[in-house]
Design a protein around this nucleic acid. Structure first.
Length: 454
RNA sequence: GGCGCGUUGGCAGAGUGGUUAUGCAGCGGAUUGCAAAUCCGUGGACAUCGGUUCGAUUCCGGUACGCGCCUCCA
């Protein structure tokens, strides 16, 4: 079976054909770095990480580019609020983002172009658009893209300009020719960072950076363009418009969008202020659990976030890890299982089906299954640590969340062992109940009693 | 108002025109002083109403409910 990818523009799955044999150029819209990443950002990171991993497993050479938006109103506002230079803020947030990403076991992109470092490319692109009559400077000094110059405007979102105007939620700037025209270059405001240009000092609009940087790094046409669900409109629609208006050729061949993370049936988002940062999540759950939780759903479907859902995912993940071998396995992998895994992943990166294969392997006890489980778990990036390391880390994490100290638990466990030796089972069970109430499980084995935090 | 999406067993979540997804939880058994873990076994589902079909959860249409985008947001 060959790879099929759901293309937002085609509104369906299409067989994947790279522009050049064996090579893939892929661009994903990244973060605006003014705050910590939340679970929604994590989902996009993990989704595209798995996608890139699988493309590489298939043998493609992938050039994975993800931008960093480091000029933006929200960045300026936050920097002002914290009374630090905006570059200090962005430096801090980029470091935090990378830390979150490494924790989630995502490989960093091959390139992370920053808006502030590609101003000349953006200005070039704007100049080309003006030459072609697809952009103009308004009275305010802002330069706008002329939506009417691109007849296909709306094709990604299946919309037309008339409907959008009827929607009447488009903010109207006085000097726009059409309400849907969008800013390419904003004239400078006093006190804010700006760059010189032939249209006056200013800074780039949001959309232009992605067109300029993707074309700069991947060429005027490339294979895959991805991003979060809320980028479909207007961001990606505008990218298509300005890119294709400038070059006259198709911009990206496949458009991929991750689904939203929901909280109480609403999208997790900054504006609704219902987000959970990855950082906060990591204090309660191993990042591998978060990754597993995310991958349990298909990348395009909505995920409902709740502590309960996470707890359930954790139980499943722990069981999967528990079934791993303690020692490296040296055995042939199972061709049939790998075949099923590949079929699942080739069908638009169906990770839930792929994970089902892992559980089928976890059930088996033969060496081939063990070897295959390791192989496929790694392919999905689900096993960043050894079994022992994961279980130990998990205990350490839980230790911070329970009230009883290790020493106190040890004392109780020893007391219970003595009671058992004296066949005082009532006393033994009372201690067990006390520990259970505190979230501690104890297991009696031939070699002694061990306790773990649930 | 415009453009889309979803509705699967207690929960999470795939998939299929007629045959077990998978996981968590539950139940029964083995095991255990009792447990835990493990192993074995097991019940349970396709929102609703019509249509197409020999047969539909799976295709088509209507209805209900939920969600997303149309404004910054991954």
């Amino acid at each position: 079976m060959t790879l099929a990818i759901f293309d937002t523009l085609a509104r369906g799955k299409r067989p994947f054909l790279p522009r050049l044999p064996g090579k893939i150029g892929m661009y994903v819209c990244g973060m605006t770095v003014y705050d910590r990443c939340h679970l929604g950002h994590g989902r996009v990171m993990v989704a595209f990480d798995v996608i890139v991993r699988h493309l590489r497993t298939l043998g493609f050479g992938v050039q994975y580019v993800r931008n960093i938006t480091d000029v933006d109103d929200k960045i300026f506002a936050r920097a002002l609020e914290r009374e630090i230079p905006f570059t200090a803020l962005t430096t801090e947030m980029i470091a935090a983002m990378h830390a979150d990403e490494r924790a989630l076991n995502c490989r960093l992109p091959d390139a992370e172009p920053r808006a502030t470092q590609h101003i000349p490319q953006m200005l070039d692109l704007i100049a080309r658009l003006i030459e072609k009559g697809a952009a103009y400077q308004g009275e305010s000094g802002d330069v706008y893209f002329r939506v009417s110059a691109f007849p296909e405007y709306g094709k990604l979102n299946n919309r037309n300009l008339e409907d959008m105007v009827a929607g009447a939620r488009v903010q109207v700037a006085e000097d726009k020719e059409h309400p849907a025209d969008f800013v390419l270059w904003k004239s400078a405001k006093p006190g804010e960072a700006s760059w010189d240009s032939r249209w006056g000092a200013g800074r780039p609009g949001w959309h232009i950076e992605c067109s300029a940087m993707s074309m700069d790094l991947l060429g005027t046409q490339f294979d895959i363009h991805g991003g979060g669900p809320d980028l479909k409109f207007p961001h990606h629609e505008n990218e298509i418009a300005q890119s294709e208006a400038a070059t006259g050729c198709t911009f990206a061949n496949y458009w991929m969008h991750a689904g939203p993370v929901r909280v109480n049936d609403e999208k997790m988002s900054k504006s609704l202020d219902n987000f959970v940062t990855l950082q906060a999540l990591f204090t309660r759950h191993d990042p591998a659990v978060i990754r597993f939780f995310l991958l349990q759903s298909h990348y395009r479907s909505a995920i409902s976030f709740s502590e309960d859902a996470l707890t359930q995912a954790e139980a499943a993940y722990v069981r999967l890890v528990q079934s791993r071998s303690d020692v490296p396995v040296d055995a042939e992998t199972d061709v049939e299982a790998i075949g099923r895994y590949m079929d699942a992943m080739n069908d638009d990166f169906n990770t839930p089906r792929a994970i089902a294969v892992l559980f089928d392997l976890a059930k088996r006890t033969d060496a081939a299954a063990a070897a295959t489980l390791e192989f496929l778990g790694d392919a999905l990036g689900l096993f960043p640590k050894s079994k022992a390391a994961f279980l130990a880390d998990r205990q350490a994490l839980k230790a911070q969340l329970t009230g009883l100290s290790d020493a106190r638990i040890d004392t109780l466990v020893i007391e219970r062992s003595q009671a058992r030796a004296e066949r005082d089972f009532a006393r033994a069970d009372a201690i067990r109940a006390e520990l259970t109430a505190a979230g501690i499980s104890i297991e009696d084995s031939p070699t002694g009693t061990v306790w773990t935090r649930d």
